[in-house]
Nucleic acid binder design. Structure first.
Lengths: 206, 206
DNA sequence: CTAATTTTAGTCCGATCGTACTAAATATGG
DNA sequence: CCATATTTAGTACGATCGGACTAAAATTAG
């Protein structure tokens, strides 16, 4: 049980370090053997800890994996908000949105691969896929950029949910490539992804 | 044990029907509860058969799932070869290539979702992802279309493997949408996918 | 109709799953 | 330093996994 607030510093330190270590072990395990094979035992072994260490800090295995997803996409979302805010023009904002995502993928390879794989593969007890529980809030920034660009005639007009899907799926190309080869060079690929996104949204020639 | 060839008709009939039934049960199970949860018991229950029926017709669970992948992508490949052969011009050939894939996705929803999910999620005993064992032969047709188009100046020049990845990932958008909602209307989406593919490969304006 | 073969359902097996539990070890606070 | 709380490793448990096995049922061939 937690003690008084004054002593929470040290235990918070220990607890945070342990949680981070276990999160990292989960990420590395999913990367190496894949989500379906990432058992508690495998994760614990990689962390150099006992299985009970995981259940002590995380209520269930599911909670641990969802924490990975939350951690990864919260980080990305923050980077995107910051990057987009530096621009006014919709095309520049969209470019910043995509670039920050692809930069994160390039610099946090294990995280993005594990995050995407868990997000795609995990299903709740009811069998409902995890990504179905995604809220509209998650894509709010992208939708705002796209709809603003369409209103200004900078992007061609197409159903917003389609534009969102197209952009997101093109961005996921980078994590997919990393899934094949964690050491892949993403330079050219990321540049092409951005090029295709912007080109695909250009207004039609009249 | 198999008897002489003259009688192989009837037993081949029974065996083929059973195999098809089990393949369909595997596909439906992966669709409903996802690859990680698709156990032999779950597949057998859905087929209305005993577990042993599966191991009788398929050496292992893995063999059954690989058979699903093989069946789906062999079918698609045949459709694509046929569709592409009807055209000479690279852009028309690329359009036919994409259209036949998307048509298959639209008309064989459970198959494409299960095929893609198994292909992406399955790992061999050594932990090696299934799609890493993909041969160059699988994308030979697409690469031929793209390189021919580039030579003729109809597509802009970019590394072939990048162009292949971009096209394939855009085509996978349709199965991904079906994974979210098996009853989704793909009409608009599929049209946009083809539009983005062709637009993204247009030569740059000089 | 009978003998041989194919196919079936059901049982059993060792292994591993996620997690609950226990008790020792460690760290903390007064 | 002692009492208290936190964290640890290790064990145990019921459930389920993929697969081996068996014997009855169904089908086929002569």
């Amino acid at each position: 049980m937690m003690v008084m607030a004054s002593s929470s510093d040290s235990e918070t330190f220990t607890e945070k370090a342990r949680r981070a270590q276990l999160l990292k072990a989960a990420i590395d395990t999913v990367n190496e053997i894949g989500y379906p094979n990432a058992s508690l035992s495998a994760i614990a072994k990689r962390a150099g800890a006992a299985k009970s260490a995981i259940t002590y800090y995380f209520a269930t295995k599911e909670a641990l994996l969802l924490q990975v997803v939350d951690h990864v996409f919260t980080d990305i979302g923050n980077l995107q908000v910051q990057a987009v805010a530096a621009h006014d023009e919709p095309r520049a904002r969209l470019r910043a949105y995509a670039q920050s995502y692809l930069d994160y993928a390039d610099t946090h390879r294990a995280e993005i691969v594990a995050g995407v794989e868990i997000l795609v593969s995990h299903r709740g007890a009811d069998g409902i896929p995890l990504y179905l529980t995604t809220t509209d809030e998650d894509s709010a920034l992208l939708r705002q950029i796209l709809s603003e660009g369409m209103q200004q005639g900078l992007f061609r007009t197409l159903p917003l949910h389609l534009a969102v899907s197209l952009v997101e799926s093109l961005l996921d190309l980078s994590p997919t490539e990393l899934q094949r080869d964690l050491n892949a060079d993403l330079t050219e690929l990321n540049a092409e992804i951005i090029r295709i996104i912007l080109r695909g949204l250009e207004p039609s020639i009249e």
